[in-house]
Design a protein around this nucleic acid. Structure first.
Lengths: 341, 341
DNA sequence: TTGTACGCGTTATCAA
DNA sequence: TTGATAACGCGTACAA
C-alpha cells in the first residue's frame, strides 16, 4: 500500500532513491544534476503528481512568486484591461496575482498593502502616487519592490509605468479651446485621494489659463465614479443659468453618464453640448455619439509594470520610469460650439 | 542594539518574557490566555510591528486564508461586480483573493486551478460547470473546497451559487414571441466551453419550439466576447436575404456591438430590428436605446459564493445550492416587429 | 494558564 | 554530482 495524501519531496526522494537535496536541486536548478538522475527524478515527480508545498517553499526560500495589486475598484473597466495584462505577464513568469481593491480609500489601501505584504507578496503594483509616506517607508523597510502605475513620475527612488495625466488633459483642453469653446465645465472623480483625477483637472485649468481664461469660477463637480453620478452632475451643470458649451469629464464612465443624461434632457451632442472623456475604454466607442477621449495604453502599461516588478525582485536596486504615450481619439461628442449657446 | 529585520514570534516572546507558545495562543485563541499576559503580549506585538510569517503559518497550520478564483476574463464587466463582492466578503473574513483568468480556455483554466492549489489556496471559486472530470477529482482528492458560480445546478456533491441561465433566456424569448416576432437570430459566445452560453441558447431554442417554431435553421453565430464581434456578427446576420426581426444576444457586450453596428447601418432600433442582451451590466443602460436584457444579481452572487466557500473550509462536508432570481429589464431595444420586416 | 519540544516540507550550506 | 543536516517561523500535543 502506498502513502496516502499529498506527496512530498521526501516521497519523491525515496521513490527515486536519491536525497531530498537532489530532488530539490533537480527542480530548481536542473543543470546541477546529471541528466540521468534528472530524468529519473522527473519521472517520479510526474508519476506521483508531486508539486511543492507552497508554505514550505515560501518559508525556506523566502519568496512566494505571488505579487499583490491594490486597485481602487474592479467594478468598472478602467483597471480591468491593465490588470489582465499584468496578470498574464506574471503568469508567463510562473507568478500569480493577489488582488485587493480599496474602494478609492487611502486608508483601506494601506490596510490592503499591509495585508498583501503579510501574505508574502514578493512585490506590489500600486495605482497612482497618492498615499501616505508611511506606506512607502513600510515597504522600503521591508525591501518590498513595488511599481506605481497609471501615473508618471520622474524618480530615481521609485519605479513607475504610467502616462502624463496632466499633459494629456492639457492637450485635450487646448483642442476644445481651438474649436471655439468659451464656457467650460468639469466633472471629475474626487481629487483629494486620486492624483490622476487631480492632474487631469490641473491640465484643464492650466490650458484655460494659458489661453487667457479665468478659471476661478470654473464649474467643477467632483463625485464618485459611476454612470449615475455622471448623469446627476451633468444635470446640475446644465441647470445653471450660464450653461457651459462643453463639459469635460475626468473619465469615460462619467462621460457616459453625462451623455445619457443629455439624451434624456433632449439635448443634442455636440450641437447643444460637447462632452469629452478620458481613458478610451470600450464604453467610449459604444455610446452615441462616440466619445472624444484620451486613449491610454492600458494593456501595455499592465504588461510593462509586471516586467519592471519582476526585474526589481531579481535586483532590489533596479528602478525604471516609463512614460507611455497617450493620444486623443476623436469621436463626434466634441465639436465647435453651436451658434446658440 | 535591537535585532534588525522583521520581527518573529520569538522576538515577541522574548520581549514579553513569555514562551512562543503563549504568544501564538494569544494571537490565535485569545481566550486561552490571561487578560494580563494578553495585554502585555499585544503591546509588544504592536511595538515591534509584528505580523506572522505567511509561509511558516501556512506550513504549520495548513491553511493560508487565501482563496483562488479563475474567471474567463477580467477584460469586460461581466465578472467584475461579482468578483469585487466576492473579494470584499473575503476581506471581511481576513482572507484574500488569488486571481487568475483563463481566457475562456478549459485547458488554461485547468492549469490555473492547479497552480492556485499549489499556491496553497484554501478554496476556489469557479465559474460555470463546464470542465474536465479530472479537475473535480483533483480537487476532491485534495479536499479543496470549491464553489461554482454563475450557473445553477442541483447537486448534493457540489456547492453552487448561480442562476438559471436556461430559464431566464427561455422567458425572455417568450416575451419576444408574444410581441409578435417571427424571425429570430442569435449571437452567442462560444458554447463548447461555456455552459452559461450553451444554456442561454438552449433556452431560446426551447421557447421557440414550445411555441411551434422550427429551430433547425435558426441563424446562430458564435464568437468570442467583444463589442467588435457583436458588430461583425450583426452585420453578417442582417446581410442575409431573409433578415431577422430580432437578434437575441448571449450577453450585453455582444448586444452593445450589435446596437453599434445597427446605428452604423442606419437601422432603427427597435423599428427595423429588435435586440436583446443578457447580464444587465452598466453598458446596457448607456447605449441608445437602452437594452432589454436579463438582470443578474452579480454582487449578491459574489458575496454569497464567498460565504458558502468559507463555510466549506470550516466544515468540509458542507454543501449548499443557491439559485438567485433573475428578471427581465425592459429597455427600448425590444418591441413589436415593425410593419415592414 | 503557561512552557517544552517536536513537526510541518522546503532550501541551502558544507562535505564528501 | 550528490548527500547529510541545519535552518526557516509557526502551531500544538503534552506536560507542568
Amino acid at each position: 500500500m502506498n502513502k496516502p495524501g499529498i506527496p512530498t519531496l521526501d516521497d519523491v526522494a525515496r521513490e527515486a532513491k536519491v536525497s531530498t537535496a537532489t530532488v530539490s536541486r533537480c527542480l530548481n536548478s536542473p543543470d546541477q544534476v546529471s541528466t540521468k538522475t534528472r530524468d529519473k527524478i522527473l519521472k517520479v515527480v510526474k508519476d506521483l503528481g508531486y508539486s511543492p508545498n507552497f508554505g514550505a517553499q515560501a518559508l525556506a526560500a523566502k519568496r512566494t512568486n505571488t505579487f499583490g495589486a491594490v486597485v481602487p475598484t474592479m467594478n468598472n473597466a478602467i483597471f480591468a484591461a491593465g490588470l489582465q495584462a499584468f496578470q498574464e505577464e506574471l503568469g508567463r513568469n510562473d507568478a500569480t496575482l493577489l488582488l485587493a481593491s480599496s474602494s478609492y480609500s487611502l486608508k483601506v489601501e494601506e490596510e490592503q498593502i499591509r495585508s498583501l505584504v503579510a501574505r508574502g507578496a514578493d512585490g506590489l503594483l500600486l495605482i497612482g502616487t497618492q498615499r501616505s509616506k508611511d506606506v512607502y517607508t513600510f515597504l522600503d523597510d521591508r525591501q518590498i519592490p513595488y511599481v506605481i502605475a497609471w501615473s508618471y513620475k520622474d524618480s530615481k527612488k521609485q519605479s513607475c509605468v504610467g502616462f502624463d495625466n496632466f499633459q494629456a488633459s492639457y492637450e485635450l483642453t487646448l483642442k476644445a479651446i481651438e474649436l471655439g469653446h468659451k464656457k467650460f465645465a468639469v466633472i471629475s472623480a474626487h481629487t483629494s485621494s486620486n492624483d490622476r483625477a487631480k492632474n487631469r483637472v490641473r491640465g484643464i485649468r492650466k490650458a484655460l489659463e494659458d489661453r487667457g481664461f479665468e478659471t476661478n469660477n470654473l464649474p467643477c463637480i467632483e463625485c464618485d465614479y459611476s454612470i449615475e453620478n455622471g448623469s446627476l452632475s451633468f444635470k446640475e451643470l446644465m441647470g445653471s443659468p450660464d450653461r457651459p458649451t462643453i463639459i469635460m469629464c475626468g473619465n469615460d464612465v462619467l462621460a457616459a453618464g453625462a451623455v445619457k443624461q443629455a439624451h434624456e434632457m433632449g439635448l443634442k451632442i455636440p450641437d447643444d453640448i460637447s462632452i469629452t472623456g478620458f481613458d478610451n475604454i470600450e464604453l467610449a466607442t459604444v455610446i452615441e455619439p462616440a466619445l472624444t477621449t484620451v486613449h491610454v495604453r492600458h494593456k501595455r502599461m499592465g504588461m510593462l509594470a509586471a516586467q519592471v516588478l519582476l526585474k526589481q525582485v531579481d535586483d532590489k536596486s533596479y528602478r525604471e520610469n516609463i512614460k507611455l504615450d497617450t493620444w486623443i481619439v476623436e469621436g463626434k461628442s466634441l465639436a465647435k460650439p453651436g451658434p446658440v449657446s
